[in-house]
Design a binder for these strands. Sequence first.
DNA 1: TGAATAGTGTCTATAAGACAATATCCC
DNA 2: GGGATATTGTCTTATAGACACTATTCA
Lengths: 263, 263
Amino acid sequence: MTDRKRTTGRRTRGKATAPDAGERAFLETYDPGAFPRPSVAVDVAAMTTRDGDLHALLVRRGEHPHRGRWALAGGFVGIQESLDDAAARVLRTKAGLPGIFLEQLYTFGAPDRDPRTRILSVAYYALVDADRLRKACAATEGVVLARLRTSWKGEAGGPVEALDPEGMAMPLAFDHADILGMAVKRLRGKLDYSPVGFQLLPPLFTLRQLQDVHEAVLGRRLNKDSFRRSVVTKGLVAATGEMERDVPYRPAGLYRYAMPEDA
Amino acid sequence: MTDRKRTTGRRTRGKATAPDAGERAFLETYDPGAFPRPSVAVDVAAMTTRDGDLHALLVRRGEHPHRGRWALAGGFVGIQESLDDAAARVLRTKAGLPGIFLEQLYTFGAPDRDPRTRILSVAYYALVDADRLRKACAATEGVVLARLRTSWKGEAGGPVEALDPEGMAMPLAFDHADILGMAVKRLRGKLDYSPVGFQLLPPLFTLRQLQDVHEAVLGRRLNKDSFRRSVVTKGLVAATGEMERDVPYRPAGLYRYAMPEDA
DNA sequence: TGAATAGTGTCTATAAGACAATATCCC
DNA sequence: GGGATATTGTCTTATAGACACTATTCA
């Protein structure tokens, strides 16, 4: 194992300090190519809920390695590109999805996770409403929306399976079953205390739709009365006064996401 | 922005699939040096609670860049070393702390975060009991335990300040104030639903000590009765029957961490 | 005995689950 | 009207905060 002088980061947030004379001299003689470096990629788990289950966008690999298997949308990080920018670019260029909610998930770095060379993957998850993600998949060859099946409950964690429309397991490339598992776990955890679930719905939605989203993510049924009460009394949603239309039953009120007062 | 064929990871968990003939041929011709790559480091925020506040281990930088400032323990990731292994090695070799609870936190990748070259930092946080971390700091030159002050409440997030024993702010290197802020935020979030707080205490502890740890991490006072009830009824701790000794008041019962039944 | 903290019991307020009753749409 | 779902109201139960009271140690 190598161990040498540490070298990490400059202050962000505009507080970067000007290097003094000694530091300038050091930087001029610094050789960045002195040690072997891994490649760094981003992989994006773009997810939505549909028919009561979580779904994710998968891309069929047309090239080696793992040709023919299904993978998350991914790509290398440019040498002058931030990680967030790289993830947004991948989602925009590989799936035609600009302006999507994205959050960093975890960095996968097992030395043998890619057969070519050492490649780290900084994984992101993205939340998209179902209509938009369905259209994006239909518009691009080799891109599908796969149903996810978790064999574990709650936030225990573990890999997830991707299923095609016939319910057959789709072979996943690399460690992407683990990345998807981490995404589902994170999403379940976030849903309890964070308004992240609204990213999976259109701007106006009914309380039933919101509950369906929560149930799909959590993988279990929720109490209808409690769910309604908690989401309304916490002020997470606001009634718009508008109603559903063209439904074969009593139309429900339409709500919109309401940022709680502290944010 | 570059955009090229994705290349991410091989399946971990022992499910790696043998490459077929076409894939073997591809791998033999793959050139891993075709594109510029960033350096990758790990930085470890080793934390404990003491005198009612969170503290973190900091190392005084003796070399450029940011010489004289205070930094987290860090180091480059070896080309064949996993990220978890690198973090554990850094904590062991730079701070003399083997066998510590470590968890990946977030990956910091702003292009200008290090003045030398593009360096990503995969940040980890470590939880140590106060005695052990204090002894480790005393044993190594240039390593101190700094009190942390958060200017934000709850899980709002943001950078944190490190204070020396006189309460003066210590200048932090790179973006390490942000990394520490993320560590505090994560720890606060975890404490609500995860038994991670026990990592900050010796194996036997009183309920008061456990509550002190929670209050130091969360930065607010908790209700004594509710805290005791919730931690006991949830089965997170088990009474040992032993008692505190040599205290100038009624000795409290000593408890130990009890893994809940589902794990 | 007094100071200090541990530990117990009880009351109350709040939130969650269960369930019944009523309202409103389309057919 | 009948079927389906929305919406409201009430009862019950679990949990958290508040607070009073007793217990045990050392000085």
